[in-house]
């Protein structure tokens, strides 16, 4: 017999880790919305941001800076690295490939993935580096209601709070600022935006920078959870079904998709996995995405795909 407390615990745990997937998926959505590029390199960007942050932190603490100064300086350094990366990518890869097919652009971002993975590990090292930015202990809730209570990870709660702040600030950025409006114009129609005087290469730099900063945020949370290491790049593959379920062009879709995937795969793993061999977390999200696609080809929140001859 499965206790209600256990179901709730699995559900909450799943929803929380789903938020963490959304953090990675958000970076994809930003770039796809503004430039139509499907950015396979998001996982590598998370790795680069995480490595830059954790290595500079280690160095600063070793030099005797106080923790708070070290954190601020480290985040500033990592953000600067992401800005340089964004500029390089826009200047040397995405810029020259403007007007190419979606497949060519996609493959070029896989090329970028290789470069970023190689460069990040060559510069910052390729071990597992622990990151201690957020508390990692747990809360036990409702101990009076359920035997043993419901176990909730503090880190997951932090992740959810950060994701909320991130989505809110992105929404404000897109809706209220001049650059945000220009971004939406570029997403609608490159040529029309250019003809009214929006500098398209600047806009794309901003988008890649935004994706880089989202990657940095994702890296702080995931780095605390897993340690900053190479396997963090596989997050990109985890985020793809999230995107597909939510829709490639929707920021809220990334969040809802993440929640569905997170909760779905935890529940499936706990209650179904034991019957058919375990490890179904590995593919469950993809099969879920496939099922969603068959019903709604544009994802739950994606813009309707209209085709003309």
């Amino acid at each position: 017999m499965i206790a209600l407390g256990q179901v709730l615990e699995v559900l909450i745990g799943g929803l929380m880790s789903g938020v963490l997937y959304s953090l990675v998926a958000l970076g994809f959505v930003l770039i796809f919305k503004a430039s139509g590029v499907f950015n396979f390199a998001q996982g590598a960007m998370v790795l680069l941001a995480g490595l830059a942050l954790v290595r500079s932190l280690d160095l600063l603490v070793a030099r005797g800076f106080s923790p708070w100064t070290a954190v601020i300086l480290g985040i500033g350094f990592a953000a600067a690295i992401m800005a340089i990366t964004a500029w390089l990518i826009q200047r040397f890869v995405v810029g020259p490939l403007v007007n190419q097919g979606a497949l060519t652009l996609f493959m070029s971002t896989i090329g970028v993935t290789f470069v970023l993975e190689g460069a990040a590990q060559m510069i910052f090292g390729s071990d597992v580096y622990p990151l201690r930015l957020f508390p990692t202990d747990v809360w036990l809730l409702f101990e009076s209601h359920f035997p043993g209570g419901i176990l909730v990870n503090k880190l997951d709660v932090w992740g959810a709070v950060i994701a909320g702040i991130l989505v809110a600030s992105l929404a404000i950025f897109f809706q209220q600022t001049k650059t945000g409006r220009a971004l939406r114009a570029v997403a609608d129609d490159h040529l029309a935006a250019q003809s009214v005087g929006i500098p398209i290469s600047w806009i794309w730099f901003v988008v890649w920078l935004a994706a880089g900063l989202v990657a940095l945020v994702a890296a702080t949370v995931w780095g605390t959870k897993l340690g900053v290491q190479f396997s963090i790049t596989f997050l990109a593959l985890k985020a793809l079904p999230v995107l597909i379920i939510g829709g490639l062009t929707s920021v809220p879709g990334a969040i809802v998709g993440g929640l569905i995937v997170g909760a779905g795969e935890k529940i499936a793993e706990v209650f179904l996995g034991s019957h058919i061999g375990g490890g179904i977390e590995y593919w469950f999200a993809y099969v879920l995405a496939l099922a969603v696609l068959l019903v709604r080809p544009q994802g739950l929140f994606g813009e309707r795909i209209i085709e003309r001859i």
Partner: peptide, 28 residues
Amino acid sequence: PSLRIKGLYLAVATLAAQFFFDWVFLRV
């Protein structure tokens, strides 16, 4: 699925095959 979806969406859908069969040959 290719009858209903195309482009990059289809690419991700084919990833489902990749991960599913990876798992099948590992676990069955």
